[in-house]
Every structure is written in structure tokens, then in C-alpha cells.
Amino acid sequence: MYDSLQGNCLMVQGVASGVGKSLLATALCRILVQDGFLVAPFKAWNMALSSYTTAGGLEIGWAQGIQAEAAMIDATGHMNPFLLKPRGGGQTEIIIRGEPQKGDARKIMDSLPDGPWPVISASLEHLRKQFDVVIIEGAGSPAEINLKDRDLANMGVARLAKAPVLLTADIDRGGALAALVGSLALLDSEENMHIAGFVINKFRGDFDILRPGLDVVEEITGKPVLGVIPHIPRLSLGEEDSVGVPKTDTVTEREAFNQPANELGTADARARDDELDRVAAVVRASLDMGKIYDLIKKGMKLY
């Protein structure tokens, strides 16, 4: 049905941090591999306090490591070309394709001969050549009007990959409908074209009460809501310990997971795999997977 997939991209962006982008991308990786596709995760630029160590001893973003596990592949440095780790006292360490660089992040970024985009582009291309689908994760919000020129993670990557984007909002926190409508209002027309639809995350309560709100959002933006994912209790995949993102209410991933993959006990690895299946099942049931596969297959030609 979809044997023409070669490096097709789908991107997950969020209206803010902590809305569940990583979780959605992780679930999509597991769903796709369950359905027989070769899939890889990608996040161009990441800022976090801790990281995931690959089997090859490289350091990448925590979520991308988990997403690689979800996709049942080994994590590689290409999955996260730039990782910045604040070290305190204004110092930031920069890790490029999994390899920590000596010196200050700002200086290193400035010294890249053609800037960061060739690095990002080459890593993305590398993955696209090897995999049927690349699930790309954004960072923060694509609508930070004061930071658009400097943004390395969101619409710049969507443009590079010509990727349709699922914009995700956390409804548990309140204001999700406003955040979706507001995000679109702040995108320019080209950026707006990338947004294929919305995913509502962490929902609790009566869907019948929510539905009229979703109708209003669809009417104002002209984009469909492609899924409402319920709040998933006792999630234990850990969450990126980045500045401003809430820690998981279970053991922080620094304690539990920031260790080389080959040091993970078999029981831990199996438990995590079960958790990935559990999450994938909930998300699969919550999304319009037919429409999402259409987006993956047809890309932005669809709309």
C-alpha cells in the first residue's frame, strides 16, 4: 500500500513545552514499526539538562533515545545533531551528532563555517535515505515571534523536510484551544501551510463537553483535530529534564535512564518496551491513523 515510502517525514510540534510532543512522536515511532515500516526519530536542536547515551557511547536527547527504542533501532548521533546542556554559571555544553564539544556552546556555534543548517540538513538526509519514515520532533513553540530568526527546531526544519506538522496542545493545563488558535494566528502563510492538523493531549473528562470547543478551533483555523489523547496515568518513560519542563512524577530520568544502553538490565529494558506498547495502543486508538498515514504518504501535496 505504501511501498513508495522513502524518507517521508511527519513532524510533531507543540504550542508550548511539556505538551506531550515527545510522547506523541514516541508513540508514532512504535505504531509505524508495528505496522511494518522502518522509522527513525529526529530532533534538530535540543536543550536539556540530561541526555541518553547510545550503544555507541554517543549522547543525544533523552526523547530521541526513547523514540529509537520505540522504533526498535539503535539510536545514532544523526537523530539529534545539536544538543545543548546548560552547565550552570552561564556555561552551556554543546554536543554535535552525539559528541560533546570542548568549549562554550555559543563560540562553537558561531565558528561553524556555514552555520548549523548544513549539519542539520545532512543528518536529516542521512536518516531519510535509510528509513521509510522520519518522525521529526520540534522544540517549544513554533510561534515565538521574537525568536523566529534563531529557531533551529521548528518551522525551519519543517521547511527543510517539506513535512506536514501535527500541532499538539496540553488540554489538562487549560487554555489549549486558545493556544492552538493563537499559534496559527502568529504563523505566516507559508508556516501555516505546514500545519496539517491538531492533536489534543492529556485529556480527562467528558468528551461531549470538549467537542464544541474543538469545533470552534476547526472553524477558526480551517484545520482538523486529528486526535484527542487521554491522560495516561503512571507513565514511566521519563520526560526531558530541560529547563522549564516539569519532571516526571516517577524517578527522574537522570537517575533511572541516563546510563549507557548496554548497562540497562534486561528487566528494565523489557518493562520499558511494554510501556512503549501500552502508550502506542492508547495513542493509536486516539488518532485518526488513516488521515495520518495519508499525510505521511502524500506529504504537503495533500493540502
Binding site: 504550542v15 508550548a16 493556544a179 493563537g182
Partner: peptide
Amino acid sequence: RGGVFAYLTGTML
């Protein structure tokens, strides 16, 4: 948490 411009703009809308 990011997205403040979107939240404020969207709320007003």
C-alpha cells in the same frame, strides 16, 4: 513554558 505569545493572542481571539 513557551508559547506565551500564542496563548495571549489566542485567548484574546
